[in-house]
Amino acid sequence: MIKGSLVALVTPMDADGAIQWDALDRLVDWHIAEGTDGIVAVGTTGESATLDLDEHIAVIKRVVDRACGRIPVIAGTGANSTAEAIELTEKSAAIGADAALIVTPYYNKPPQEGLFRHYKAIAEAVDLPIIAYNVPGRTGVDMLPATVARLAQVPNIVGVKEAKGEMARVRELLALGLGPTFALYSGDDATARESILLGFHGDISVTANVAPEAMHQMCAAALAGDSARAAELDAPLQALHRDLFVEPNPLPVKWALARMGRIGEGLRLPLVPLATSCESTVTAALAEAGIQI
C-alpha cells in the first residue's frame, strides 16, 4: 500500500499545447527530492480529458521511466467508456505503472450497479492494482460507500480516492471496516489532514504540485497520529487548499507552477489561462505557504 502525499501531477505544456517533456522530467525529479510519496500521472489534474490515447500513454511511460523505481507511479486510466478504460489500464500495466487510478465515468451518470460493473470489468481484464476515484463535483455521479464496499471484495481493486470533500463521507467509508489492505485516500486537500488522522492512508493532492515537501511532512505527521504537528504544518497550506480552486483545476495550479518557473504557460482548449482577477488570490496563497514567485 502506498501511503502519504501522492501528487496529482500536472502535464506541462507549451503555449501551443505541446507537451513539455523536459519540464515533466524535472517535475518528477523535484518531487522525488522533496519527499513526495507517489506520483499520479495523467489523472484528471494532468488534463487526461484533452490528451489523446497515444499522448496519454506516452506521458505515463515518461514518468515511469524517469522515476525508475525511485517512487511509485500510479497511472490515471479513467474514461467514460469501460472499453477505453480497459485499454488505457492494459497499456499502463505493460509500461510498468505500479497501479491505476480510475475516475468514475463522467457525463453518462451510471447508476451504482453500472459503477460496480465498470470497475469489476476493468479489474478482471487487467492484472494491475486499481484505485477507484469518486469526484462527483466534476463527473456528475457519486459512488456511494455501499458500492465501495462491494468493490473492495473484487480482486485487484485495492483502494478508493474520495473527493466529495465532506467529512461525513470520510466517516461513512471508515465505518465500513474495509480492513488494513484496502487503501483510503483523500482527494480533497482541505480535509486531508483530518481524514488521515481518522484513518485514511494518504492524500492524492493538488497542493502537492506546488508544496511537495510540506504536503509530505503534513501527511507523515498525520499518519503518525501527531495531530498537533500535522495541524501546525497544514495551517500555512490552508489558503492553497482553497485558492488553487478559485477557478477550475488545473488552471490555478498550472499558473502557479509557471510563475515558479517549473513549467510553461500551456493549456489546451477548452481550458484557458487563469483569469487576471484571480492572480492576486493565488499569489497571496503561495506567499502564505512560504512560496515566492
Rank of each mutant, 00 (worst) to 15 (best):
I2H: 13
S5Q: 12
L6A: 14
L9F: 11
V10P: 03
V10M: 02
T11I: 01
T11K: 06
P12R: 06
D25G: 12
D29R: 13
I32M: 11
E34C: 14
V42R: 01
T44Q: 10
D54P: 11
D54Q: 14
E55R: 05
H56Y: 05
I57V: 13
P72V: 07
S81Q: 05
T82E: 09
A83F: 13
E84H: 07
A85K: 05
E87L: 15
L88I: 08
T89Q: 12
E90M: 14
E90I: 10
S92G: 10
A97N: 04
D98T: 08
D98W: 12
A100Q: 10
N108L: 03
K109N: 08
P110F: 02
E113N: 11
G114M: 00
F116P: 00
H118K: 03
H118N: 01
K120Y: 06
I122D: 01
A123P: 02
A123L: 03
A125T: 02
P129G: 05
I130H: 10
I130V: 15
N134A: 09
V135E: 13
M143P: 00
L144F: 14
P145T: 09
P145E: 14
V148I: 13
A152M: 10
A152V: 05
E162A: 01
E162L: 04
A163P: 04
K164M: 14
G165M: 02
R169H: 15
V170G: 06
L174P: 09
L176G: 11
G177D: 06
G179H: 08
F182W: 05
L184F: 06
S186W: 07
R193C: 14
E194F: 09
E194P: 12
E194M: 11
S195V: 02
G202M: 00
A211P: 03
P212R: 08
H216Q: 06
A220M: 10
A221V: 08
A221L: 09
A222C: 02
A222R: 00
A224E: 13
A224F: 10
G225V: 07
A230N: 03
H241C: 15
L244M: 01
P248I: 15
A258I: 01
G264D: 05
E265K: 12
P270D: 14
L271F: 15
V272L: 15
V272M: 15
L274T: 00
S277R: 10
S280E: 00
S280T: 01
V282H: 00
T283M: 02
L286T: 01
A287P: 10
G290F: 11
G290V: 10
